[in-house]
Design a protein around this nucleic acid. Structure first.
Length: 292
DNA sequence: TCCAGCGTTGCGTCTTCCGT
DNA sequence: ACGGAAGACGCAACGCTGGA
C-alpha cells in the first residue's frame, strides 16, 4: 500500500537528509538550544531564516512525487520523469518541469510525448523537534502548521503566483502545449483568496487542477478545505483516489485555446465547425479555425 | 571562476476585516 | 473610532546548478 503525504514521510525526509546534512542545516536553533523545523508561533527570541533546507526539501518532494506517479503509470507503459526539459514548450534546462508523465523516460522530451505536467510545490508542513540525545526516535512532531510561524507550500501567495506564472508561460509558448494538462501538486490547503482564482484558472484551461496530496494536514481532525466550488482545488484522500484521478486525466485529450476575435469571426467559425457530423469532429475543426 | 537564474522561507508595509 | 489579526505583495537572504 502506497501512502500520500503524511508525518512519516516528513520524518523520512529528515532521516534521509541527516545522511549528508548537519542538524544546523535542517533545523533552527532556539535560544535555549532546541532544534526546531519552524519557529513556534509565539517564539520570543532572536530569529533567523534557514536557507540550507530549501534545495533539500525541493529535491526530496520532487523525487517522492515522481516515484508516486511512477507507481500509477508504469503498468500502462508510461514513465514519470523528473526534471523534464522541452524547449519547445518553455521548459528549458534551467527551469524544467518538476515531473511529467511521458511516453519515454528521458530528460529531453518532445512535446508530443508529454501527457501531463506536474508542478510540485511542497514543503515541510508540520513542526518537528530534533533531539540530539535520542538515537532511537530523534524526530518528534510538535505541532501542525497552525502552531508555527512558517507558511508552508501553497499557503504562500508567492508560491501560488509562481505556479500560475509558470503554467501560463507554458500555455503561451507553443500550440503543441495546448493538449497537455498542467497540475499543481501541493501538500497544504490554499488560502481563501485563491478559491475563486483556481476555479477560474480551471475553466480557462490554464491550470487543470491544484491537488493537495496531504489528506490530513491538520492534527485533531482540524477543519481544512476539501475542494473549491468547481474543484479547481481538491484534497485527495488516498493513493487510490490519486490513481483514479490521474487515469481519468489521461483518458481524454483536451485543448487549451484562447483568442481575441470578434463575435462575427467567432460565429463564422462555429457555423463552419457545426457542419461536421460528430462532436469530436466539430471540436477539431473549431480548434483548427480558431488558431488560424 | 563568475554569474544568472531558480528555489526556499521570513520580514516590512500596506490594506482589509472584525470585534469592542 | 480604534486596535489587533490576517492576508497580499514585494523584497531580502542565501544555497545550488549549469553555462559562459
Amino acid at each position: 500500500m502506497t501512502h500520500l503525504w503524511n508525518k512519516d514521510i516528513e520524518r523520512n525526509f529528515f532521516t534521509e537528509s541527516f545522511k549528508f546534512a548537519t542538524p544546523e542545516q535542517l533545523f533552527y536553533v532556539t535560544d535555549d538550544n532546541r532544534y526546531l523545523a519552524y519557529w513556534p508561533k509565539k517564539y520570543p527570541g532572536k530569529k533567523n531564516t534557514l536557507q540550507s533546507r530549501n534545495s533539500l526539501i525541493g529535491r526530496f518532494t520532487e523525487k517522492w512525487t515522481k516515484d508516486l506517479i511512477q507507481e500509477i503509470v508504469q503498468d500502462k507503459g508510461l514513465f514519470a520523469v523528473q526534471g523534464a526539459v522541452c524547449n519547445e514548450i518553455a521548459l528549458p534546462r534551467n527551469s524544467p518541469a518538476d515531473v511529467v508523465i511521458s511516453r519515454n523516460r528521458y530528460i529531453e522530451q518532445n512535446p508530443e510525448d508529454i501527457l501531463a505536467i506536474f508542478e510540485v510545490k511542497m514543503s515541510v508542513v508540520w513542526n518537528w523537534e530534533f533531539k540530539i540525545n535520542n538515537s532511537v526516535e530523534p524526530f518528534t512532531c510538535i505541532g501542525d502548521y497552525k502552531t508555527h510561524k512558517g507558511t508552508p507550500g501553497l499557503l504562500r501567495s508567492d508560491s501560488m503566483l509562481k505556479a500560475i506564472g509558470k503554467s501560463i508561460n507554458i500555455r503561451v509558448s507553443n500550440l503543441k502545449a495546448a493538449t497537455i494538462p498542467i497540475i499543481v501538486l501541493g501538500n497544504t490547503p490554499i488560502t481563501k483568496s485563491y478559491y475563486s482564482k483556481v476555479d477560474h484558472l480551471k475553466s480557462a484551461g490554464i491550470v487543470q487542477n491544484f491537488w493537495s496530496i496531504n489528506p490530513e494536514p491538520l492534527d485533531n481532525n482540524g477543519e481544512n478545505i476539501k475542494q473549491t466550488e468547481k474543484k479547481g482545488f481538491y484534497r485527495l484522500e488516498d493513493f487510490n483516489e490519486l490513481r483514479v484521478s490521474i487515469e481519468s486525466l489521461l483518458s481524454e485529450t483536451r485543448n487549451y485555446f484562447s483568442s481575441m476575435k470578434s463575435n462575427k469571426e467567432l460565429g463564422k467559425i462555429i457555423d463552419l465547425a457545426n457542419g461536421e457530423k460528430t462532436y469530436e469532429k466539430k471540436g477539431e475543426v473549431f480548434l483548427k479555425l480558431i488558431n488560424e
